[in-house]
Nucleic acid binder design. Structure first.
Lengths: 287, 287
DNA sequence: GTTCCGCATGAATCGATAG
DNA sequence: ACTATCGATTCATGCGGAA
């Protein structure tokens, strides 16, 4: 049953006749997802409770029950995702009785049994992590960004997220030696000219699976689950304009704002009226 | 049965009458460990051969058999570790059929069944990771440093690895380019640096659980799997002078060299004669 | 004695080809 | 169908020799 409470935003795009569409559902993720058609979503990106410390507001799912609570939802996400789509899950295990809890790694194993492929694990290195001091551990400054896929042939637009090369390249490419040419030549053979030009003009490199993202300094009122640069990066990487992005735990609406900015259609689900209203407010400010 | 092949080094210490002792065993880890007494080791730190990765030098354990191969060894490590001791395991899953293999997370679950506590997971961010380009993933620039303990009351000397505050700001003043600022993670959080003297007088802060440092590619033929600064950091953090450090997969001897430098006793086990000899050579050079 | 610059190499992965 | 081998691809670091 799809939630009756749905809010739709439209943004006219400069690049085409079509408008980009953003929908927010107020309701339970599992129930709302059951009303969605299969194979319609290009990217799911979300930060469910526990990764973002909102557990108390969500009814407090205990760590020991986390996997059984989440698995029905991932099953629906697998259904609504296109075969070429990707699921990015931002999550981190809490400390329970001085140990890292195992619900995240158990979830990975169970999701593979559901049919998900565990393609990769990205690291989000948080520069300004939560301050504090404990006797048996340091501050936690990273979170997991688990990448799951439905098939091995998923869409990935790597050139959209390239980064500037390191300082060494400037020195290196300043004066190309003939040895460089010789080396490239020996490797490629016929494609001599192409290969040299490829390196001469090179200013960008592909990133790695450790994300160094700018930190959010703006809003002090509410803490966004993740900085906008995080969904922006993955939306650029795994979707093109006109594709559809889903966040089943929308929170303050960061994923939808990022989607609108990048001319992607988007769908968000939020169970709490308070966050639902906040998301609407934030989107109206940013549209 | 303890291996008959044992080499012992001694280093006279300035701080006490006692000499620091380093032993290397040539033999199979499991067999050699069985000859060790219980509760004698303060820190185990090691980087076992990753599944199928170094099959030219080691046996080449298949990913699907990795857990069953490793579990008997972790059982012995649990026995020889002191109740106040710590086990640091450097490991990373390899890609099999376009997916991250699950042997690491399965190992964590099985080790907990053996009685280990999974206290923490540190991230080693490798600044110079292996190059390459693929259609479905980026370069892998991080590895896991899993912390296991025997009890909740383990020794931890946090103040030994403190780092200067404002290191990040200092880097900025060094006139680094905007590009490097964006690419580089905060230096605060790494806790690594060779010149400690210049930190004197600065306000100090505790590091985080993300360690950023480069691999050492310089050594020809036999390069160490991890840079010396890695065992140095953990030895400082989890042991005091006179304690005993164990590395059951010694390789080129980095752990023992670090231990000798820091006046900790140490034990190394290496199955390959070639690496055994290399470790002895390296220790003699550094003693 | 510094600084600069060339260069080899590193826990890699995919897809195609061969047995 | 399933495994084994091989070539192509790519980037940052520290070393050593030269200026």
């Amino acid at each position: 049953m799809i939630s009756k409470n749905k809010k739709v935003f439209k943004k006219h795009n400069l690049f085409s006749q079509k408008a980009t569409r953003a929908e927010i559902y107020l309701g339970n993720s599992l129930e709302v997802l059951k009303g969605f058609k299969s194979d319609g979503i290009d990217l799911v990106i979300t930060s469910p409770p526990y990764a973002d410390q909102r557990n108390s507001t969500y009814g407090g799912i205990k760590p020991d029950h986390y996997v059984e609570w989440f698995l029905p939802i991932t099953k629906e996400l697998l259904r609504v995702l296109k075969p070429t789509g990707t699921f990015i899950l931002n999550i981190k295990e809490k400390v329970v009785n001085s140990e890292r809890h195992t619900y995240v790694i158990e979830l990975i194993l169970k999701m593979r049994e559901q049919g998900w492929l565990w393609t990769e694990e990205y690291i989000w290195h948080k520069k300004n992590c939560y301050p504090g001091k404990w006797t048996n551990r340091f501050r936690d400054s990273w979170e997991r960004l688990l990448q799951f896929n439905k098939t091995k042939k998923f869409n990935m637009y790597q050139e959209e997220v390239m980064i500037p090369m390191g300082e060494w390249a400037k020195v290196r490419l300043k004066n190309l030696s003939e040895i460089d040419m010789r080396r490239d030549n020996s490797k490629v053979g016929s494609g001599f000219g192409k290969n040299v030009s490829k390196w001469v003009g090179r200013e960008m490199a592909y990133p790695t699976n450790v994300l160094a993202l700018a930190t959010e300094t703006g809003n002090k009122n509410h803490s966004a689950v993740f900085p906008k640069s995080l969904p922006v990066w993955f939306i650029k990487l795994f979707t093109k304009r006109g594709d559809t992005v889903l966040d089943p735990f929308l929170g303050s609406g960061t994923t939808l704002i990022a989607s609108l900015e990048l001319d992607r259609n988007s769908v968000g689900i939020e169970i709490l009226k308070e966050y639902y209203n906040l998301a609407i407010e934030n989107i109206n400010k940013n549209i």
